[in-house]
């Protein structure tokens, strides 16, 4: 084949079908929006049940995590996510699915080396860099206080 690598890469990139970004964005917007609206509704319901604001705000993500993990277990979450894309990935539902799905898959390797070790393969980097970023943010916040 008389085509150098650079030309070939450009050739294949130019001709490959692209993801339908506008359609994907619209789907992510309405499903993601629906999840957030649902969460807001939950917050109001919990407050109506005489919970403190703080407790209600803690219980909302816990409920979303529970529901996402449950739907993952029932094999429904991935079908919704295939449609919604970032709509289910960005809210905490995506994080719950990223934890639950490897746990289901890797139970065949046992509770320790399977579920325990593999559960964090996708979500692990989010936790590591999430914590790291919060530390850096905390240091900046502290410095601002000291200087300011």
């Amino acid at each position: 084949m008389n085509m150098d690598s650079e030309t070939y890469k450009k050739f294949t990139k130019a001709r490959a079908p692209k993801s339908p970004i506008i359609k994907d964005c619209l789907r992510a917007f309405w499903v993601g929006g629906l999840i957030c609206t649902f969460a807001e509704g939950l917050l109001h319901i919990y407050k109506m049940l005489n919970m403190t604001e703080e407790n209600a705000k803690t219980l909302v993500p816990i409920t979303l995590i529970f529901l996402a993990a449950l739907l993952t277990g029932f094999g429904i979450f991935d079908d919704i996510a295939k449609y919604a894309g970032a709509g289910t990935l960005v809210p905490i539902t995506g994080f719950a699915n990223a934890m639950a799905s490897p746990a289901i898959d890797d139970k065949s390797e046992g509770l320790v080396m399977g579920v325990g070790a593999q559960m964090f393969t996708i979500a692990g980097p989010v936790i590591v860099y999430g914590v790291l970023t919060s530390v850096i943010y905390g240091v900046i916040y502290w410095l601002c206080g000291v200087i300011g």
């Binding site: 979450f77 894309g85 995506g94």
Partner: peptide, 17 residues
């Protein structure tokens, strides 16, 4: 899928290619 990509129940989208 388990070996090369994501867990089976992971919610993601596949590229057109």
């Amino acid at each position: 899928e388990r070996q090369f990509r994501f867990p089976l129940e992971y919610g993601g989208q596949r590229a057109p290619t």
